[in-house]
């Protein structure tokens, strides 16, 4: 299965990169932009044994996110799963 993980700075946590990007956009004529957050996109492929239940796979991915891919103290994460 193909997994896409999105990691973003937690709301309420300062995002210096997001702030810098947000301030740059008006200089290029893009007005009215707010809430810019700069995060990470992580793609991965998992080969599961046939018959592994989908919810078990999802809980394993969730554990990967919590333990390594994101730092829950400063980051939020979401992921999508494609059966490919």
């Amino acid at each position: 299965m193909h997994v896409r993980v999105y990691v973003t700075p937690k709301h309420g946590i300062l995002d210096p990169q997001g702030v810098a990007v947000e301030r740059s956009l008006p200089a290029l004529g893009f007005d009215g932009v707010s809430g810019v957050r700069v995060g990470k996109f992580i793609e991965l492929q998992i080969d599961l044994a046939d018959g592994t239940p989908a919810d078990q796979a999802r809980s394993e991915i969730d554990e990967m996110c919590r333990k390594l891919l994101a730092n829950p103290i400063i980051e939020d994460y979401t992921f999508t799963v494609d059966q490919a």
Binding site: P9, I13, L14, P16, Q17, N71
Partner: peptide, 17 residues
């Protein structure tokens, strides 16, 4: 040590980038 949860908090990018 923060990543290992042996200390509280986390360290992010400097404010001036």
């Amino acid at each position: 040590l923060t990543e290992a949860h042996l200390l509280p908090g986390a360290l992010i990018r400097n404010i001036g980038l």
